[in-house]
Design a protein around this nucleic acid. Sequence first.
RNA 1: GGCGACAUACCCAAGUGGUAAGGGAGAGCUCUGCAAAAGCUUCAUUCAGCGGUUCGAAUCCGCUUGUCGCCUCCA
Length: 471
Amino acid sequence: MQLHLYNTATRNKDAFESLTPGLVKVYCCGPTVYHFAHIGNLRTYVFEDLLRRTLEALGYNVNHVVNITDVGHLTSDADTGEDKMEKGARREGKSAWDIAEYYTQAFQKDWKALRLLEPTAWPRATAHIAEQIALIQELEKKDYTYTVPNDGIYFDTAKFPRYPDFAKLDIEGLQAGARVAVTEGKRNPTDFALWKFSPSDAQRQMEWDSPWGRGFPGWHVECSAMAMKLLGETLDIHCGGADHIRVHHTNEIAQSECATGKPFARFWLHGGWLLEAPDGDGKGGKMSKSAGEFVTLDVLVKQGYSPMDYRYFCLTAHYRNYLNFSHAGLDSARDSLRNLRKRTDPLIGKATPIRSDRGLEWRTKFLESVCDDLNFPQALGILNLALKDPDVLEGEKAGLIVEWDRLLGLGLTEAETSEAVELPDDLKSLLTERAEARKNKDWKRSDAIRDQFRDRGFVLKDNPDGSVSVN
RNA sequence: GGCGACAUACCCAAGUGGUAAGGGAGAGCUCUGCAAAAGCUUCAUUCAGCGGUUCGAAUCCGCUUGUCGCCUCCA
């Protein structure tokens, strides 16, 4: 089936074909590990995982690279301000290297919890300084760079006439609206640093020798250098959050294409933002790490949600649209998933080949939705209808779920590991007492005991077979 | 100030020219000592408002209103 993906470069849903038959090279912009990833960040990785799974379902091998940015991002685009890594280090009284390691592990823990497929490679910026230097030297050789004394090596965006095209930038409007102090010596407002000199009056924790002196790489060059090293000069797909379009990806394209003379990526996919819904006293708006307050996956887990609840929540909205995060919304997702599992759990292990016309029809419909720019919300609707369809045999339903869960990644084919509820001794004896009361049809006593359980946070359910479940 | 995106039921949300998917919540019924669970049924003549194009519009165009984003960093 033909996959169509919305390509930011063309602003159109384009038919996807890989450059090399059977192999797709995907580069996804990863986290800057100076703090925890929030659930808005995570939404983008969920979308990228859906892309990966879709490509694999279509028979492609996917070479999937996700970088770890462990150096180099300053706090503003004006090439000024404090390095985020060093700031994080100071905040926590650790070294910048420790900070990077700590948050990388935290990030990868979230990654696994969300059932995101392991990428082919997790390159770290600090492990690819030589490649970055080489790329800058190539640009220097081709005369795209210039030096700003006591500052760094800059890319001259005026020498790349297509610079504004990708993000449809209005350069003049940019200039007019500029509220940011312009770096002294920059030729154009859009020029960006490729290499930053270490400050002469302060010792940086992360710095390297280079042909231009001691310093550290700019924060766009790492992606180009690592992507090209690991995947070649032209990628099939480059992904990231929508906030990368304007600056980061625009700059990646400029420096990569000027260095190689080839298109850097054929498809650019961008995930929409998670917004904080204005429920309660929340003000609403984009969730942002630098704004301070943010919700992490761990926070949700502490609130009683499972990572799969959040994954399902992401699945309910199209990846390119805004998604409003609210607890009401997450509750709804959690309940939906719970209800879904009630229907799919009894199907585990019962899959049979799908042969009936009806079964094949559902299979096709689901795949069509997914192939239409990853329309998972629609696919979920189809899944619900298929499960309810009385004309599809149980074994085929089970087979469809096995197949579809490889795309959804919700773990529907694995039994949930629910921990056995440990009952306090006094409640255990009450349970015995209630069984006795029920046998004697003492409903008043029986219900009173059930209420007692409820007050202690346990829900008693009398099953049709006479047994009692405690939750 | 400039630029842009979005607006679908109580909530979330798909649908982008052919007559409103799906989920959650709610309601009713069946079942049950009662609950719970499960099953069945039900839930937008209508897509922010107003005009226009069209045989036909939630879908295209214009205006208005509202929300959000970008023009610092950000997934």
